[in-house]
Design a protein around this nucleic acid. Sequence first.
RNA 1: CGGAGCGUGGCGCAGCCUGGCUAGCGCGCUUGCCUUGGGAGCAAGAGGUCGCCGGUUCGAAUCCGGCCGCUCCGACCA
Length: 510
Amino acid sequence: MARNITPRAKDYPEWYLDVIKAAELADYSPVRGCMVIRPNGYALWEAIQRDLDFRFKETGHVNAYFPVLIPVSFLQKEADHVEGFAMECAVVTHGGLQKGDSGLEPTGALPEPLIIRPTSETLFGHMYAQWIQSYRDLPMLLNQWANVMRWEMRTRLFLRTAEFLWQEGHTAHETAQEAEEETLRMLDVYSDFAHEFLAIPVIKGRKTESEKFPGAVTTYCVEALMQDNKALQAGTSHNLGQNFSKAFEMKYLGRDNQLSYCWTTSWGMSTRLIGALIMTHSDDEGLILPPRVAPTLGAVVPIYKNDEEKEKVVAFCRQLIARVCGQERLDAALKRDHGRELVSVFCDERAQQKVVLDLRDMRAVEKHFHWEQRGVPFRFEIGPRDVDKSSFVLKTRFDGAKNFFDLSQATAAWLQGEVTRVQQAMLDRALAHREQNTVDASSYDELKAALQERKGFVRCWFKESREVEARIKEETRGTVRVIPFAQSGSGKCVVTGEETSEQVLFSVAY
RNA sequence: CGGAGCGUGGCGCAGCCUGGCUAGCGCGCUUGCCUUGGGAGCAAGAGGUCGCCGGUUCGAAUCCGGCCGCUCCGACCA
């Protein structure tokens, strides 16, 4: 159907890139591994930021901004951390350029090289050490929205790029228990956000030792399953224990008048979520956005044959928009967008969502494809026949449903009802996909077969072991994605036969 | 970094093996007409140092050498 999009069944990675291109979400940059996030894509990130940021504020966090450059010596202070990140750091060695024989060349070598942050634990540690004096300064609950850089070998738009946008929360606490509570609280925030806002079902749990964050005591994660049955880590929350506070001398004078090291955490979600959004919901026709996320919630497409019909139909479209968005918002939009072919009417300023009246001089069918590929959740189709009946057609993007409504039914509350309904239906559909693609394995052969056949999440009893995990990864490309919190009973490890009380989910991951 | 492939208008490609006139085609773009309930049609246009550097030759997109870049597959990863 969509002639510019490769069907998923033919080539899933190609489909993914086609969807991004068709929806104009991102483009490649002149620099290898980097991407330009285009307005349609950035609007998704803004929507994610708005909702997530509110959840951070609700849980007592405040935002700050830390610089992008970090002294190399900082990275060295925590042994595991260096080892984990050293190879993927971009390094700044010079402060200037001069004209040389073959064009501009670096000059002014720095006494100590700087790294472009791959993450900011070290810098937060350094500052926290200065800001935290006593238990009265705790907990310290900061977050920052920032870019980070990791020199990746291979990149994919949104899923893995050299530079990406994210938020990183960094907190310091008085006790180990408080830090653990914070780590788990933020994991809940991530899980709720994924379900409620992105309509992406995720599984909460813990990472194995080999998958955890370099420098963490424990890493928790929310893990999602994509349409092609590969897993995607959607967010992580780390309990850093006292590893960083010892490395950076983050000490506080306690209620007992003794100096103690802080207990710290960090947690993050990134622009990778946009990739998750695409690979969870979209279809062969293009992008599908959950209605709460969509910057353009609805597109109104008038259908007409001649000027007389056009006038009649467009007037009706305005009536419809006035009912759904409010007359004042429509008037403001008509004034602002006067003479433009697309009139954007806010239906919710706070959520920055709008309904667009499409007055472009194109055939209606082409407009349909246009909005469809961009994932707009609702399309209002209005032709002369509808005007005569005082009705309109509502097409729902996620299931292709076409329904007739009377103009009198169209209200802001009605649209919100549709939003709620579709949002839930999309979550349900994604959840059903995950459940249908979660299988059990009771032997190593079954595990191997399931991973090789890309069955999705493969659940089995497993006794955690670096060596065994490495072997399985070698043989199947599969890894332990998550050790879910929800556990009951015990069984024998499918590989070693040892008794264990943990079932894990294996999968091949992005 | 190892293996494979590819660089020709914005995108996708043909031409290269076997050198030769003005470098083609599809999509897209611009203008006009005509159309408009699932990607119409016609007409006229705009747009290319054939990745870069060098060599062979009367003559190079085409042959030779070097370099650069990109994509895919592995090792590494939010």
